[in-house]
Structure formats: C-alpha cells, structure tokens
Design a protein around this nucleic acid. Structure first.
Lengths: 230, 230
DNA sequence: CAGTATCCCTTATGATACTG
DNA sequence: CAGTATCATAAGGGATACTG
C-alpha cells in the first residue's frame, strides 16, 4: 500500500507493504499480543489515531491483519501472513539492539516502559490477591513520573493514577536506569547493588520484583564487539 | 535518519534507520554485490540519483555502509552492521515471495531482469572466449525489448545495444515468462517445454543457458498453501 | 564515473478536538 | 471503546538536466 517500486524483486514487494512509517511497529504490537485499537495506541503513543486507523486498514487490505467484530468490540489480529513476519521483526530488533547505538533521552518514554513491563509479567509468579507495585521515576515530570502496576494472577494493569489499593512495594529509579534493565544492559541485581534503582517494601515482595518485571525480549541479544560499534 | 519514533524499543530504533522508502533496497543491492553508484542505479532504476545519493549518505552516517575512495572511483560497501542485515532482508524477501500475491504488469521491469540475470551468472560454467546471448523480450517496447549478455569466464556484461560480437544463442519469451523463471514459479525446463520461452542456437549453448541464467535467490522459497493466500 | 542542481507538488504526518 | 474530522506544515520524492 505504500507507493509501488515497480520491481518484481520480492524484497521490494515486501517493502511496498511494510516500509511506511509506523507499519512494522503496528505489526510488532500485534505480535506482542495487543488486540484492540486503544491497546495498540498505548504501545504507539506518538502515533495519531487517524494514522493508526489508516495503517490498520492498509494491513487488513494487504492480508497481514484480520479485523473482526466481537460483539461491540473490534479485534485486530495477525493473519498467517502477519504471524510469519515475526522472525523478520525479531531479527530487525536484534539488529537494532546491536547496531543502533546509545539511546537518546528522547527515546526514553515512561509510558512505553510501563506498558511493556506490565505486558511481560509472568502471572504464574503473582500471588493470589492483589499486589500493587508503585514505580517512582525520578527524573520525569510529575504527570509521567508515578505509576502503579496492579497484579493479580488473572490480570496485570498499569495505572497512571493511584489505584487506591495499598501499595505493596515501590521501585524508584531514573528512567534511563529502568530502561537499561529492560534492555538487558544491566540486570536488576546489578542496578540494585549500585543503587541506581531501589526497591522499598517487604523483602518477600522485593525479591519477587525482578522476577515479575522481566527484561524485554531483546535483552539477551549478544552485543557486538565494542570496537566495531565505535 | 528517518524521523524518530521516540521509543527505546530496538525494533523502532532499527526502523528509524531502515524504514524510509528505498533504504532497504539500497542495502539489498549492496549485499548483492553492487559497489559503485552507477551499479546501484542499475539495480534501482526508478530511484532518482539525488535520492540515492541522500540514502547512501544516511547509511554511511548510521554506520551501515562504508564509503571509500579507490583512486578516482568511489566504492560503497556494507559494514559489519550492514552485513548483519542480510538475514533480515532474506527473511523479508522470502516473506514477500510467499505473501505479496501476483505481480502486476508494472512490476515487470526488463532492465532489472537483465541486471539480475547477468549478476547471478556462474562464471565457472562459461567457456573461454566470448559468448553472447541475445534476449528478445517479445512484449516490450523495442527500446527495452532487446538485450545482449556478453559472457566470458572473467566477466559478464549486459548491453541494451548490439555489442557487435556474433550472437551465440537467442532467448525469446514474454517478460512475464522470463520473470516467472527468475522467481522460480516455473523452471527453464517447463517453460521451454511449454514453449512460453524458446532458445535458438547450437544445442551445446542451448543446454547451458538454464545453467548460466539461474533463477533468483528466492526461487526456492516454499510457497504457502494456496488456500491461505486466497 | 559519481554525483549536484532545480523545481514542483503531492502526501504524509503531527496535533487536537470531537463523535456514535 | 473505536474511531473521524480538521488543519497546517513540512517533507518526501519524482523527473530531468547538468557538472567536475
């Protein structure tokens, strides 16, 4: 649906469908499990809803995404074709991890961090009842500096306003430190030891937090020899 | 070098560098072996030289491509980082082969076909001396309908004007038939048998042509179950 | 060979507000 | 929840001609 390249090369034909701005990130979100318009928006905060809508329509038209109504809801999901993009997107992400250098401050978005942290929680490790973990991001304007993740074995939610429940533990750190953990640049253990991130709360919970809030899927990508990057 | 996504996700960081129009195709050309500006242009015929120049500069700036002067020549080559995109581009091409459907007539470009055929020739199979194979593309305006590929064990060239040497054999067929062979949709053998493509010339040469002009690199990609595509 | 120089113009996209 | 509506701006990019 992008402009045509007038090439029969399959790479060109693939890129006609995929290389417009945001397109592959929309697919990434779908492959990560988002199914509703507003969930997708949360994973793509800087994308205007108009554009998201347009991209979704394009992807449906090109057979990469399926749109279904489920009662009053609309459900987007990757088709077989979309699902087959997963390995390519994983390679691109691994490449990005290895070769795109140091993140700029503008890349550090607390909304996205919280959204991804909550999405990766291993619910099997969450005790029954409700547990609330507060995140204090120290170097971010108030409105984006406090978050609560509400965990139950059935469900994990993010809130940007105090959910009311008692807070079981609080994680405090700079946005960059938290993102570094997500990226696998350093482990929870290292960050806690260096006190770039701290956790307050009962030891039982403190110990579980690194297990709940696992690093992102690319954290394990081996980094290139530093000589090559410089 | 594209506009930033303001995301720390490595897929987003990769796409900032790669998802602008033409970028990945430039890299594809470099990975296919093109090293000079005008070679790249031949593999990217609809790209304006201004834009190619811009993209090359961007890729150099982002460390994906190296630019070197060699005497009066300028040589572009993939860096380690660029080389590491090969698997991703191969997956995208394989995906394109499986999921982008039937080619439109506008995608069938004889220049590109000849350029790719010549580039894939296995020179080890070319006899010493000079062999000229003429291609008559039956359904294309005269100016783009006749081509000559000049083969020696050292070098293979494409000409769009009669190179003067004696022609050893002539391949005749529609553009689509020839592209179908390139894509692996059908084999030389099948196309010859069905007479959608014909070769005239001494049997010795006729037999070698399918070996010289091998299908493209994606020809072997398994196609999806037809039910799924429809 | 390896690019620049122009020129025009569409289109993409960001931002925001609003609706069924 | 799931989008549309609107608007203004900036880019992006196509075509062509030209240069060291």
């Amino acid at each position: 649906m992008g402009s045509p390249y007038h090439q029969f090369c399959p790479v060109a034909k693939a890129m006609e469908l995929l290389d417009e701005r945001w397109t592959l990130l929309v697919i990434r979100e779908l492959l990560a499990g988002s199914r509703h318009f507003n969930d997708l928006r949360r994973g793509l905060p800087r994308m205007s809803p108009t554009l998201l809508s347009k991209r979704l329509n394009q992807l449906v038209a090109s057979g990469v995404v399926e749109r279904r109504r489920d009662g009053r809801e609309v459900v987007y999901s990757p088709t077989r074709s979309g699902e087959e993009l997963r390995p390519a997107i994983e390679l691109l992400g691994a490449w990005g991890m290895r070769w795109t250098g140091v993140l700029g401050d503008v890349d550090l978005d607390p909304k996205l961090l919280m959204w991804d942290l909550h999405r990766n929680v291993d619910r099997a490790l969450v005790p029954s009842g409700t547990t609330v973990v507060q995140f204090d991001v120290t170097d971010v304007a108030a409105r984006q500096g406090q978050w609560w993740i509400v965990l139950t074995p059935e469900e994990v939610d993010v809130c940007d306003a105090d959910p009311g429940h008692e807070v079981s533990a609080t994680v405090t750190g700079s946005l960059r430190s938290l993102v570094e953990i997500w990226r696998g640049d350093r482990t929870w253990i290292d960050a806690l030891r260096a006190e770039s991130v701290t956790i307050t709360g009962p030891e039982r919970i403190r110990r579980l937090i690194p297990a709940w809030f696992r690093p992102g899927n690319f954290a394990a990508v081996p980094r290139p020899d530093p000589d090559l990057v410089a």
